[in-house]
Nucleic acid binder design. Sequence first.
DNA 1: AACAAGCCCAACCGCCCGGCA
DNA 2: CTGCCGGGCGGTTGGGCTTGT
Length: 312
Amino acid sequence: MRTPSWDNRGLKKGTWTPEEDRKLVAYVTRYGSWNWRQLPRFAGLARCGKSCRLRWLNYLKPNIKRGNYTDKEEETIIKLHEKLGNRWSVIATHLPGRTDNEIKNHWHTTLKKRLGKKAVYTETNVKASKSNSFGSNPDKDCIQNNGFFLEASHSPTVSKASDPDPLSPELSSSEFSSSDYTTRQNLFLEDGFDFLDAYLADMNQNISTESFHISQFTSQANGIDNFHGSDAPKTMECVRPESPLSYYNENSLVENDDFGFLEAIEPITEHSWTEAFVADMSLIPNELLVPLVNESESYFSSAYDVDDIWCV
DNA sequence: AACAAGCCCAACCGCCCGGCA
DNA sequence: CTGCCGGGCGGTTGGGCTTGT
């Protein structure tokens, strides 16, 4: 999209490369977003923290749903926007898998225009109907709701009340077919971190004589979650009993900013925790940080599928 | 086939808010 | 109380892609 450029601090701007994505994914899945401003330094990225955060939240985070919106999703957006206005982040909380940025984009590019046309159409017909001696309501196709016009239920584009959740894999008409979406979910739940699991399992073997054990890291991460007790949000666990990430917890690792879990890696070095990060980055295998295929291959076309990052 | 116009969306920017010292 | 810092949010934009002529 945007032409890559460098600002006066030497930070890169513009389109993210697959390699940058891989570095960010590898780092955040491993250490979480403990400090977005500091994170790029330790992740080996010449990006500002804000850019990293945005990239992660809007594009790289697992379970992000992209592509076509279902009728029900659009209906939800319209109704919520009518109630909440441009509070995209709040609206996004009602649409699992959708980001505020994407909803905002969809609103500006599609829904606003659609509603605008509908409103113009309706207003025109309201005037016409008022002057129409037959008194029929040409607005019967629309439901006016605080200035917004929703297509009536007989419209084929509006989902019925009995429709199952459009976000369910079975009914999703998003960019991913239902089977694709299911597969995608499974990729995250079962294989999303295989590339890390394999590496960490291997590391476990290699450093088994050392005091550090990755399971300490994961169990401590869970401890943090437990510490937060009932306030802790619902968690998603990757169940892989034999895996060092068997207790992988998305919130504790990715969204929990507590530094506590970092203590678990201290045995790696006897130096400061920041050095531990630097040292530990060196342990991330090259295959996580460098392209896995030749750049000549389509993977590295400008339109590469970010999902590939989760399918390594 | 070539070009123009419009569409779409990833990414940036600036502002605001809450936490903390 | 105040200032600083990091995170979050909404508005805007750059440029690749698609569609129409």
